[in-house]
Computed example of a mutant assay.
Amino acid sequence: MSATPRTAGTTPPRSAAVDVFELGAEHEQVVFCNDPATGLRAIVAIHSTALGPALGGTRFHPYASTDDAIADVLDLSRGMSYKAALAGLDLGGGKAVIIGDPATTKSEALLRAYGRFVQSLAGRYYTACDVGTYSEDMDHVARECSFVTGRTLAHGGAGDSSVLTAYGVFQGMRAAAEHAWGSTSLEGRTVGVAGVGKVGRHLVRHLVSDGARVVVTDVHAPAVERVLAEHAAGTGPAPVRAVGSTAELLGEPLDVYAPCALGRALTDDVVDVLSARVVCGAANNQLAHPGVDKALLDRGIVYAPDYCVNAGGLVQVADELEGFSFDRAEQRAARIYDTTRAVLETAAAEGVSPAVAADRLAERRMRDVGRLRGIWLGR
């Protein structure tokens, strides 16, 4: 845990070679997994178990270098600690990355080898789905491992966590809208969604149901076509239209901007041209560097911190540990509205950005509850 505020999910500038001990100084454990027989090359990072065992997804991605993979897993695992703490869960933060192209590298043998590595951590880390992995993959991992969530419904799991991730983002957006305009309704507002994959697609559905006008973009054309087909208008203008790029989307007159693809979406240049009054999206690690949150604040843009609003998926897979109930998980995800509201009110009261306020609230819970938990466990 850091005593100095640093927005969760932001990585300091680094040299060409990553110093794992320096960059991961806050982390409890980093494990490198290598299985030549299956081609598995994975890294598991456990940031904190102050509140409970670490839980976080497995990202399967063709990183350009091992250094990039290390930096990403350290960054993401730290964010998971803050996400779980702010969501009120008795869980710590961890993350895993598998290096490779899932389209060509992924196999049952590789996933089962990965499961054996996770099993060797003896419950300090629970894994789940992330970019490049799916519930079906977790079923394979679970054949070798007891510490897996996000399995398919057929195997007693929670299924696709993107459903409640999107629901939680929508609840956070309602709280941000209330802070900006005095009303939780998005009716009549124009919302730009960058990325309409697993989460963005469900978010669009919530927005349309609430009466918003939605503009979408995605680098994957079939994803855009699917969303447009789902919301094709019978008569009158369609509630959803598409533009060709994120740059075009940022040029639109938006009320809300929702980054829902990969991280680092909020750069200085983006903040300079953004017309939206609210930024609230599903992507992790949206701030390109520390200081972007202050730039948003200076421009009067209400920023709903990413790890605050996108915690619905974590809530969903965490519920699986108790025997999954979608209704119970949905009720818990609905509390993201209250959490976001508390973050924005704290930021206003303390004169800091919402990102700093969210960090402070999460750190306070990790410190206070973690200390008491440690006493009871004899630490």
Rank of each mutant, 00 (worst) to 15 (best):
L74P: 02
A103K: 15
I98C: 03
F117L: 03
K106H: 10
T127R: 02
G115N: 08
L121D: 08
Y125I: 08
D101A: 03
I99R: 11
Y82C: 03
A85P: 11
L121R: 03
D75G: 11
A142I: 05
L121V: 10
S77E: 05
D90N: 13
V118P: 04
D130L: 09
L86T: 09
A85T: 09
L91P: 01
D75F: 07
T133R: 06
G123N: 10
S77F: 11
G123F: 10
P102A: 04
A103T: 13
E108H: 14
G123Y: 12
D72C: 12
Y82I: 02
R143E: 15
A142R: 11
D75K: 15
D137V: 07
S120F: 07
L74E: 05
C129Y: 06
K83C: 10
D90Q: 12
S77N: 03
S135R: 02
K95E: 13
A87W: 01
D72S: 12
A84C: 14
G132C: 10
D90I: 02
S81G: 09
K83P: 12
L111V: 06
D130I: 11
D90T: 08
A122P: 05
S77Q: 04
I70S: 07
A113W: 01
S135H: 09
A122I: 10
C129Q: 14
G79K: 04
G132A: 10
Y126E: 00
K106W: 13
T127C: 15
I98S: 03
V73N: 08
K106V: 10
G88H: 10
R78V: 02
Y126V: 09
K106A: 13
G132I: 07
L110P: 00
V118E: 00
D139Q: 08
F117G: 01
Y125N: 06
Y126Q: 00
A87S: 14
H140G: 01
V131I: 15
D75Y: 11
V131T: 14
Y82L: 05
L86E: 13
S81Q: 08
Y114G: 01
V131Y: 14
Y125R: 02
A109V: 03
L91Y: 11
G79T: 11
L110C: 08
E144F: 00
Y125A: 02
V97K: 06
G123S: 10
R112A: 01
L111Q: 08
L91T: 02
A96H: 06
S81M: 06
P102N: 05
V97A: 06
G94Y: 08
G115I: 03
A128N: 04
T105E: 13
K106P: 11
A128Y: 00
D90G: 12
G79W: 11
R124S: 15
A96C: 14
T105S: 14
G88M: 02
A109H: 09
E108F: 15
L89Y: 09
A87Y: 05
R112S: 00
D72W: 12
Q119P: 07
I99C: 11
H140R: 09
M138R: 06
L110M: 15
A71P: 07
Y114A: 01
V141E: 00
A84I: 02
G123H: 10
A71K: 09
A84F: 09
K83D: 14
I98E: 07
G100V: 04
K95R: 12
T104R: 14
A71E: 06
G123K: 05
L110G: 04
Y125L: 05
L89N: 02
A71I: 04
A142E: 04
T104P: 00
M138C: 08
D137Q: 07
C129G: 01
I99M: 13
G93H: 04
L91M: 13
K106M: 14
Q119A: 13
